[in-house]
Structure formats: C-alpha cells, structure tokens
C-alpha cells in the first residue's frame, strides 16, 4: 500500500473495473445486475404474454410447455409477470436508495464540515432515529400514509437515511482531518470548493459501496412490506406481493411460491456480491 491513497483515488478508474471483474463476487454480481437491468429494460420484448392478461393459459398450469414458469390462479403467465416484476423491483431499489443516499449524504457531509452545534444536532438526531430501527420507521410511515407501493418505497427510503448519514459522516470526518484538506483551507478555498471538490469525490467510493449493498436491503424491505399487504396492491406483478398471494395455493401450485422467492433472492444476491466486489476493488487497504 502506498502512502498517497487519496491521490490515486480518481485516477485509478480504468484499473478499477479490471479489479472488480477479477474478484469472483464482483464479476458474478455485475453479471446478475446487468441481466436484471436487461430484463427490466426489454420486458415488453422478452415477455411472451401480457403480465396482467387473465386466462393467457389455463389456471395453475405447471412450469413447462407454453408457459415456461407456469400460470397463476388467474391463468396469468408467471414468466411474464416475473420479467415485469424485475422492472418494479429495480425501480424500488433505485428510488429508495436515492432518497436515503441524497439526504443521508447531505446530512453526513454538512455535519462533518460545519462541526459545532450543527454537527451535534444532526448527529444526535441521527443516533435517535438509528435506534428506532429501519423496520419501525418504515412501518410508522406506512401507518401514516396508508398502504401503497409508492408509500412503501418512500418509507424504506426514509428509514435508510440514518445509516447513510452516519456512514457518510464517518467517511467525511476522516477526510477533513487529512493534511491536504487543511492545506486547502489555508490556501483560501471556499466552502463550496472544499465540499464539492475535496469532500464529495473522496466519500463517494465508500458511499457507492454502501448504496450498492443498500439496494439489496431496500428491495428486501419493500418486498417484505408488499408481502404483508402494506406495499404493492393488485394487480401489480411485484414479487413480494406475488409471494403473499401464493400462500393460498401452496399445495396446489408450489411454483407460485418458489419462483418469485428465487427472483428476489437472486436479485438481492446480485447486489450483495457486486457491493462486496466494489468494496474490495475500491478500498485501498484491501486492494494491496
């Protein structure tokens, strides 16, 4: 490990992808995530049937034949529903993490940069929110706003803010104590330059890893809410909601239970592996 770690951060970009692909978890994770994005983008072209069309085949047809993954209680094609579900799932992950990340990073960087009483207020409130746990925050939000997919995504996004704020604060605090940062202050750099040019690019690698892993947490949490009936409502082909519906037919059509579950697990695994891979390829300590 060399001593000028912060210098080779942005410049190491081309080598970074190579390192990511060389780690098995990074390569597999990236492949899964790319496949999901592909499915989500081209769902219309890939899906053999309209996901909402009832009676596309007989009811409860087992996987195989005309219906690759079988049909559900309304005769809807499960494969098409899973494909369109990938779009909803990725959107849930992106929006929820987007909310947590932007607000969390703003809070964390402001607290680390301003210090003093602003820091105290921001970080103490973050501590309190953190001890509420994400589940309770998300559940309270849904209780207030009422059950819907949109509200569930907002709830999961807000619930994640304390964690992102804490992580960003810790990363930013490390930067502000480094000598290049102090030198920049002595050289007369204004707050905007300090935050945007020095702080932001240097906390970004950490936050990218956290956000990638966070997509899996957010997808799991939102699917859990939909499973309870507090998120996606019919006839959405959201995977958690589909799983909840499968409970009534568990004996008759077990594939309605196994397949959406596998879809969620593979998606979450993909983001977890990618996050792990990114951590090893972005972290200068593990990089050696």
């Amino acid at each position: 490990m060399n001593t000028s770690t912060h210098q080779d951060g942005p410049r190491a970009a081309p080598g970074f992808l190579r390192r990511l692909l060389r780690s098995p978890s990074g390569a597999i994770g990236l492949a899964i995530v790319l496949l999901l994005i592909f499915c989500a983008l081209f769902a219309e072209m890939l899906a053999p049937y309209n996901p909402a069309k009832m009676g596309a085949g007989g009811r409860f047809l087992p996987p195989g034949g005309d219906h690759l993954l079988g049909t559900d209680e309304f005769g809807r094609d499960l494969f098409s529903r899973i494909l369109f579900g990938s779009r909803i799932t990725l959107l849930i992950g992106a929006v929820a993490v987007g909310i947590s990340l932007t607000i969390g990073m703003a809070v964390g960087m402001i607290a680390a940069f301003r210090r003093g009483w602003i820091e105290a207020i921001l970080m103490r409130s973050t501590d309190v929110l953190f001890s509420f746990t994400e589940t309770l925050i998300a559940l309270s939000f849904v209780a207030v706003l009422g059950p819907s997919l949109q509200n569930a995504v907002i709830a999961v996004g807000v619930a994640g803010i304390p964690f992102y704020a804490r992580t960003c604060y810790a990363a930013a605090l490390v930067e502000t104590s480094k000598s290049y940062f102090e030198a920049s202050i002595s050289a007369g750099a204004g707050p905007a330059r300090l935050v945007l040019v020095h702080l932001l690019p240097n906390v970004l690698p950490t936050m990218i890893v956290v956000a990638t892993l966070g997509v899996s947490t957010a997808i799991l949490a939102a699917a859990g809410l939909s499973f309870l009936g507090l998120g996606a409502q019919p006839p959405t082909s959201e995977w958690g909601y589909m799983l909840a519906g499968s409970r009534d037919y568990i004996n008759r059509a077990p594939w309605l239970m196994t397949i959406p579950g596998i879809a969620i697990a593979v998606t979450v695994l993909g983001f977890n592996l990618l996050g792990d891979g990114l951590r090893t390829s972005l972290d200068p300590v593990e990089r050696k």
């Binding site: 958690g240 799983l243 568990i250 579950g261 697990a265 792990d276």
Partner: peptide
C-alpha cells in the same frame, strides 16, 4: 452465508412451512 443474507426471510418461512 452470503446466500443466507440474500434470502428473504418471508420466503424462507414459506418454504419451511411448505
């Protein structure tokens, strides 16, 4: 372990129940 973390517990529950 990473497979276990990625598995939704509501799904695991349904599978065990089944």
């Amino acid at each position: 372990a990473i497979a276990g973390i990625s598995m939704p517990h509501f799904w695991l529950g349904l599978m065990l129940l089944f």
